[in-house]
Design a protein around this nucleic acid. Structure first.
Lengths: 333, 333
DNA sequence: GTTATTTACGCACACGTGTGCAAAACAATG
DNA sequence: CATTGTTTTGCACACGTGTGCGTAAATAAC
């Protein structure tokens, strides 16, 4: 009742295991009839190759690791979902790791990946990660890396990113065109390159439209409903209230909007809202809602492509940065 | 520049690799001084054990597989997220598999899991899966299984489930108490036990409240926005319109509501809405919204507990079904 | 019928780790 | 010093698979 191995097959067929191995790999140096016998027997016994044995012989793993801050967030779960599907179609399996925005956790994850000898890694780093040298360890073990979303240039790895600065500039323009001028922005930690870029785009946009309301960025160390509530509460204490809000995360948006709805009813009626996160449900909420949609599908495809070609061709070691444009969707489903 | 192995260490320290192995495992039969030397050297060289070699020796894998229809859906991504986190804390890694509601895919996944020799499997099967015998293959390889959410009794495995019938009965009661009587239900394929149970609860609830509007279940083979639009379109062709809607999925709800908003504006103003899926954002939408929240956290904990104890104690082979109550949340965040 | 060539298979080792057993080194006892 | 006991280390094999090399048998060439 235990696993059937090529040795078992060999023994039962009066062959050597090396012959069985060759037969199963359709080697030309095994007699057609013998091959037939082996394959039929293997099939009848439900033989499944033991991948672990292959790994030991130096064959690369077919498991790739994906490290994300978490998979609650729509963007990440969509991304992971697509990577997982495409990877499976290419014969790869995806192991998921969540840094939970913690650097310590991230370091542990990297060690774990080395121990498992994974084939490669796609990752978006945590909010806490300002220094990325722990990822260099992977180089030593020749485990290729592709970054996405939150990247750090100094790591010098292939990456798939959004054109963040331009995106935020466009969102501000769009809100301005809709008649809003006092635009606040609930963003992420500015230690992260990604958010710095967006914040720059935001400020640039405000300058461009000559906003009376000067730049008002509230920074969130984590993207939770609670954080959204806290930040908006603070923001609403100022005398001058914004007339539009931009959110870096769906959860920040929900937190903020639910807070306003409960504590300042009516004030959201004419509020302009733009949010990353891509859950179409927000646009059910209000007419004047903008969804900032990242092209997860294309990004996931691109990231996997980069990784698989790095796996196939470890020598190449080329660095490629692919930039995508966010789609700014004007309240339709 | 290649991986440091115990043999390398042994060679450099003039020891045999078996001594090094013992030293690293803190065996009492190795000299304290030698052990010290080995451990220091290993640390200085950044030695990381090669798990694949362990696997070959029969040590169980530390990778568990989680098979879900997909991870777009909030319930599944939350569940997977929690399982992944808890598993990592217990030294396990999670590999994700998406059946995409396809039986063929599911069978391929099972084979892949066998090839990888995973430690165990937690799964919720696809909509297409009426017959579950392909999972029995895992028994042969002594890979333990825990089912959750969508389960099939005939498989006779430990499972973590919702009290579906009672839940739907309660939802109907609740809507009735809120003054609704013409309650329609957009549900999933009735070939799945889970949805049959819910549908029975729904019908039972309607009888209980003496609903004038007879049972009206629209079945979705997949939970997508598009399906929600299609089903509601069909439903809205009938003369008598429902005054409340129950959804088995967030995406069905968004699809349906966006359709109504666009094509029958105003009609949703007084509509009672209850939805599985747990995205709090729906309750921003309307006052009269009920969120049917499954206790993902507890369910994930329970499922992982069951699996880990089955892994630790393969002989026990006991079957345990754990049932949870859904929380019916009345429009607050 | 002899030699050369091809075909088909077996042998042995490698991959990294762990462990039962034997051998060596050392300590203790008489 | 001889004997016994204990501690420490090394040897050899196992796990499942693939592959270079060798070789016997089968076939072809002359």
């Amino acid at each position: 009742m235990k696993r059937v191995t090529i040795k078992d097959i060999a023994h039962n067929l009066g062959l050597h295991h090396s012959t069985v191995s060759r037969a199963l790999r359709f080697s030309s140096e095994v007699n057609a009839e013998t091959r037939e016998r082996v394959i039929n027997y293997a099939q009848s016994k439900g033989y499944q190759i033991n991948r672990n044995a292959l790994l030991l012989r130096g064959v690369r793993s077919n498991i790739i690791g994906v490290i994300v801050p978490n998979i609650h967030h729509n963007f990440f779960s969509n991304f992971v979902s697509i990577v997982t599907r495409l990877a499976f179609e290419s014969g790869f399996i995806v192991a998921i790791f969540q840094s939970e925005e913690s650097l310590v956790q991230e370091i542990e994850i990297v060690n774990s990946i080395i121990q498992q000898n994974l084939a490669g890694v796609i990752f978006s780093h945590s909010m806490e990660t300002e220094e990325v040298s722990h990822f260099n360890k992977l180089d030593q073990y020749k485990i290729p890396i592709v970054c996405f979303d939150r990247v750090t240039k100094s790591l010098n790895k292939s990456a798939v990113v959004l054109n963040n600065e331009a995106t935020l500039r466009n969102v501000v323009r769009k809100l301005s065109a809709m008649g809003y001028s006092k635009i606040a922005y609930l963003s992420g930690a500015s230690s992260i390159q990604l958010f710095r870029e967006r914040q720059n785009g935001y400020i640039g946009g405000l300058e461009e439209i000559n906003a009376s309301y000067s730049n008002c960025v509230a920074l969130a160390g984590a993207f939770t409903i609670q954080k959204g509530q806290e930040l908006i509460k603070e923001l609403w204490m100022h005398d001058e209230k914004p007339d539009a809000l931009i959110f870096d995360s769906h959860f920040l948006a929900i937190g903020a909007l639910s807070y306003l709805k409960k504590n300042h009813p009516g004030c959201t009626d004419n509020l302009g809202i733009a949010s990353f996160g891509g859950d179409p449900c927000l646009s059910l909420y209000a007419e004047n809602t903008i969804i900032i949609k990242q092209p997860e599908k294309q990004m996931a495809e691109a990231a996997l492509d980069l990784l698989l070609s790095a796996i196939d061709n470890p020598a190449a070691d080329k660095v490629e940065i692919i930039e995508f444009q966010a789609e700014i969707i004007d309240n339709k489903l």
